[in-house]
């Protein structure tokens, strides 16, 4: 059995280490969902960059897209005694008890790009975009572009049950409600991946008279849109003109497609959530300024008219 002395000694050593670390650089724990898409990889790259610029010692924990791994990571950060925690929660529910543990340990928690449904006093602030708003920006673009013309729309959904998929679908449907010229005829999940987007689009095209029945495509993310564009081309149709293409995320490849006239519009989800998060954290640590509970990042609409080639050049080295 481990002697009491050894335990106490270990505890003293641990607390000394913790104290010394808080005097030197700040230690922040970052629990990231995983690396399931290029956008996610860009978010991680930018967060690491931002931490380095500010001299923060960032402890990175990858959860392999599992909530239990994120809870594990948070509890480990608390045990290590970090100064603050950043987390991109993979799902909205189930964070109450671990956030309360963090609160008891007096460690501020900041959410990145996704929300939780715990009570607002359990986290410092949330930096993100309004996913429903993204969907409605895309829907509104379609409404404006069509200007009353009849249109059958097919929808490529994100991963079944994920909050971006649910919210982006809701937002789009809200925007096209009341406009009877726009009909959503097919909607299936493409799992947020290029391969699945292409496969599902192929079957949409076959089911709708070789694609002649389809006027527009709404994809919950750019990756699925890029895959679908290839499917449309292989079916002998022209994406961007025969079938309008609108999607969300604004990754570099969609700008290439827009420059080639194959995609029409995209709504930006900026991967730089960490910048505003660190700013808010710094202000809080310095003099206790409470930031707003939700720091909303802009959901900018990009179309073919916004010089897509230049935007592509700008974005392509960001680590997407």
């Amino acid at each position: 059995m481990i002697s009491k002395k050894a335990l106490v000694g270990a505890g003293v050593l641990a607390s000394m280490l913790m104290m010394s670390s808080s005097v030197m650089a700040q230690t922040v724990g970052f629990s990231q969902i995983g690396s399931e898409s290029g956008w996610r990889a860009a978010e991680t790259t930018l967060t690491l960059q931002q931490a380095k610029e500010r001299g923060i010692d960032l402890k990175f924990a990858d959860a392999q897209q599992k909530q239990e791994n994120q809870i594990k990571a948070l509890r480990s950060f608390i045990a290590q005694g970090v100064d603050a925690i950043l987390i991109a929660p993979v799902v909205a529910t189930g964070w109450d008890s671990v956030l309360e543990e963090a609160k008891e340990a007096e460690i501020p928690v900041i959410l990145l790009d996704r929300m939780v449904d715990s009570s607002k006093d359990l986290y410092l602030t949330a930096v993100g975009s309004d996913l429903v708003h993204e969907g409605s920006v895309a829907g509104q673009w379609l409404v404006d572009t069509l200007a009353g013309k009849d249109c059958n729309v097919v929808e490529l959904q994100g991963t079944t049950g994920s909050s971006p998929a649910i919210d982006r679908k809701n937002g789009f449907e809200q925007a096209i409600k009341g406009h009877d010229n726009i009909k959503l005829i097919r909607s299936q999940t493409g799992d947020f991946t290029r391969t699945k987007g292409k496969e599902v689009m192929e079957s949409f095209l076959k089911a709708e008279g070789g694609g002649k029945n389809i006027c527009a495509l709404y994809a919950h993310n750019d990756d699925m849109a890029v895959g679908a564009i290839q499917a449309i081309k292989e079916a002998g149709l022209k994406p961007g003109s025969d079938i309008l293409v609108v999607s969300i995320d604004a990754v570099p490849d969609i700008f290439q497609a827009m420059a080639a006239g194959e995609a029409n519009a995209t709504v930006e989800l900026t991967p730089n959530m960490a910048g505003p998060a660190f700013d808010a954290l710094a202000a809080y640590m310095k003099d206790g300024t409470m930031p707003p509970k939700f720091i909303q990042t802009e959901s900018k609409l990009y179309t073919q008219a916004d010089d897509p080639q230049a935007v592509y050049e700008q974005k392509k080295d960001l680590g997407y």
Binding site: G29, S35, L58, F60, A61, D62, Q64, N69, K72, S76
Partner: peptide, 16 residues
């Protein structure tokens, strides 16, 4: 897993 989190420097792929 705890060791990897304590280390805190492994990217997603190096973790796997």
């Amino acid at each position: 897993q705890t060791y990897i989190i304590f280390d805190g420097t492994l990217s997603s792929w190096w973790t796997k």
